[in-house]
Computed example of a mutant assay.
Amino acid sequence: MIETAKNLIESYLGPFGPLMLVGLLGVMMILITLPILMQKQEDPLDRLRDQARKQRKDGNATEKLRTATSKDKLEKYSNFLEPQDADEYGAVKLKLMQAGYKSKNAVRFYHFFQFALGVFGLVLGGIYAIYKTSQGDVTTQNLMLMCLGPGVVGYMLPKYWVTRRQATRIDNITNGFPDCLDMMLVCVEAGQSLDQSIMRVSNELKAGFPELSEEFEIVSHEMKAGKPKDSVLRDMSERCGVQDISSFVTVLIQSQQFGTSIADALRVYASEMRDKRVMRAEEAANKLPTKMTLATMMLTVPPLLVILIGPSIYNISQNLGGG
Rank of each mutant, 00 (worst) to 15 (best):
Thr4Arg: 13
Asn7Ala: 13
Leu8Lys: 12
Ile9Tyr: 01
Pro18Glu: 05
Leu19Asn: 08
Leu19Gln: 15
Gly26Leu: 12
Leu31Arg: 10
Ile36Tyr: 06
Asp43Tyr: 04
Arg47His: 00
Gln51Trp: 08
Gln51Met: 12
Lys57Ala: 07
Gly59Arg: 03
Ala61Phe: 02
Leu65Gln: 13
Ala68Cys: 02
Ser70Met: 06
Lys71Arg: 09
Glu75Tyr: 02
Asn79Arg: 11
Pro83His: 01
Ala91Met: 13
Gln98Trp: 01
Gly100Arg: 02
Lys102Met: 09
Val107Ile: 14
Arg108Glu: 10
Phe109Glu: 03
Phe109Lys: 07
His111Met: 13
Ala116Ser: 11
Gly125Arg: 07
Ser134Gln: 13
Pro150Ala: 07
Pro150Asn: 02
Val153Arg: 09
Met156Val: 00
Pro158Trp: 00
Thr163Leu: 08
Arg165Tyr: 02
Arg169His: 06
Asn175His: 09
Asp179Arg: 05
Asp179Val: 09
Cys187Gly: 09
Glu189Ile: 07
Gln192His: 12
Asp195Ile: 04
Gln196Glu: 12
Ile198Val: 15
Ile198Thr: 00
Arg200Leu: 07
Val201Ser: 15
Val201Glu: 12
Ser202Trp: 06
Glu215Asn: 06
His221Leu: 14
Met223Gln: 01
Asp230Ser: 03
Ser237Glu: 15
Val242Lys: 01
Gln243Arg: 14
Leu252Trp: 08
Ser255Leu: 03
Thr260Tyr: 05
Ser261Met: 15
Ala263Val: 04
Arg267Gln: 04
Arg267Tyr: 09
Tyr269His: 10
Met273Arg: 00
Ala281Tyr: 09
Ala284His: 06
Thr290Gly: 14
Thr290Asp: 07
Lys291Pro: 03
Ala295Gln: 07
Thr296His: 09
Met297Gln: 03
Ile313Thr: 05
Ser317Glu: 07
Ser317Leu: 11
Asn319Val: 10
Gly322Tyr: 11
